[in-house]
Amino acid sequence: MNKKMQKNQESPDIELQKLEDYIDKFHTKFDNSDIIPILQFVQDIYGYLPCDALEFVSKKTHIPLSRIYGISTFYAHFSFVPRGKYTIKVCIGTACHVRGAEKVNAKLEELLNIKNGETTADYKFTLESVGCVGTCALGPIVVVGTSKKSEACCGGPLKSGRNVSLGDKFHGQVTPENIEEIINKYQGETDE
């Protein structure tokens, strides 16, 4: 895993207020077990782990930055670089693998003109692979989620009285042929 924490010149100054509110909610003395949920929150609101946010977390919680770095690099979900609006996760679990997930991945790399693990220049898409999303029956699976507020991509905000909606959008039985159509749908979506 090649992960490096770096100050990103391109990224705008980040808003720390939300993070401060969240951390303040803990009130009690911090122990180590709080750090993963906090990092997950950081990743949720910014879409990645901005260096400034991590320094802020470290100051607030008195958990050393080195320890935060160690944890961030260990778990696959954390990213130090900004990610696209949509994260396209190609499932490469066994069931999807035997049904041709590799071909789907290759087609996606070709369509988006990036390698797996990279983000498009316009920050619209990040392409990555995921171990298994547990929808093996319908492989190959491609999951598309937005890096921020993942619920919003699934037909707008939750309607009241409706069952809990699935955060990310799952696409089943994907082939190199029909993946283009799926991507085009997201390409066409304008920013709200």
Binding site: D31, N32, S33, D34, I35, I36, P37, L39, Q40, G70, I71, F74, Y75, A76, H77, F78, G131
Partner: peptide, 25 residues
Amino acid sequence: IKKGAGAFVCGEETALIASIEGLRG
């Protein structure tokens, strides 16, 4: 509820415990 963060090895019980404790799993 403790949410995992994407590490297969955390299904192993002692790694899972380390993960809940906020350590590398």
